[in-house]
Design a protein around this nucleic acid. Structure first.
Lengths: 152, 152
DNA sequence: AATTTACGATTACAATTGTAAACTAAAATT
DNA sequence: AATTTTAGTTTACAATTGTAATCGTAAATT
């Protein structure tokens, strides 16, 4: 039952979570090493983020002797979903399709990815509507008709 | 020549920009009204963000009598692209395809959108690769082979 | 045993962000 | 002309974020 995931993850915190999500579990030493190379963070910096994430429950710290083994307290899937919702909450709902199309064009995809995309798209075909309403202006403006403006 | 757009836009600032992008140009009064309804922001709050955006050059203020007409100093397209790059910079490159597929499944799309998506996907078909490398861990790990970890 | 190292906890600190009140000057209304 | 409304500017202020040094203690090394 998809754990409570209304949590906000900052950019820096994402870097920590990515390491843990990828490794499954890790010591602070491992996390520090990865980010020292990848982000050129001082060990102290990484320690700060680990501490904050543990306090927020996004990282679980299992005692192991006098230190800890860290693992993810929130799922990668749910977190990515949140990030996606945030992105699409920011842009005009009418621009969603075009935006996703741009992503596809830019992305490096595997053959398998392409199949996945095709399947998702096929499933959409009979669920698409004539006009997606704009949500930039309250009242779901009819733009051209109502305000005589070009709403995308 | 796509204007310099390495600028960061915060969530709150996006709300202001959306109004301006949608209307083309607007008075502070108009922006304030929209966000008073949509976000329940006090006029003073909206004023603060307008001021900050103008200072950063993201909003242009054309003097009109004793007040201003505001318009966008950065393009919506470029800004959306930045937001997308940021999102995909955060998640594992290997998860890009699956993530986009999820977006499609969730999105409300128009028939036209579906056609757009299909076109973008068709263009991808002959450009896809066998395996997208993971970028969560430095050195483009080979995961299973190299570190014996499940890299997604 | 003495010393060095490692790791977690505490403290620091400036910049950014969200949220808004207060102030000021010009314009509109009474 | 006096008053009220507007719009822009200045100031406020706590929380968050990025970035890190320092401190204390337990463990490993010499």
């Amino acid at each position: 039952m998809a754990e409570e995931e209304r949590v906000e993850i900052t950019d820096a915190e994402w870097e920590i979570m990515r390491v843990v999500w990828t490794l499954g579990h890790a010591t602070s030493k491992e996390i520090i090493e990865v980010l020292q190379v990848k982000k050129e963070w001082k060990p102290a910096t990484t320690k700060t983020f680990i501490g904050r994430l543990v306090k927020k429950g996004m990282l679980l710290a299992e005692p192991q002797g006098n230190k800890f083994i860290y693992s993810a307290g929130i799922s990668e899937k749910g977190s990515v979903e949140n990030a996606i919702d945030r992105l699409f909450g920011q842009i005009c709902s009418r621009a969603t399709g075009k935006t996703i199309a741009d992503m596809i064009s830019k992305a490096l995809l595997s053959h398998e990815d392409v199949r996945l995309l095709q399947a998702a798209l096929d499933a959409k075909t009979d669920q698409s509507v004539d006009v997606v309403p704009c949500n930039c202006i309250p009242g779901q403006c009819q733009c051209k008709n109502e305000h005589n403006i070009n709403c995308h």
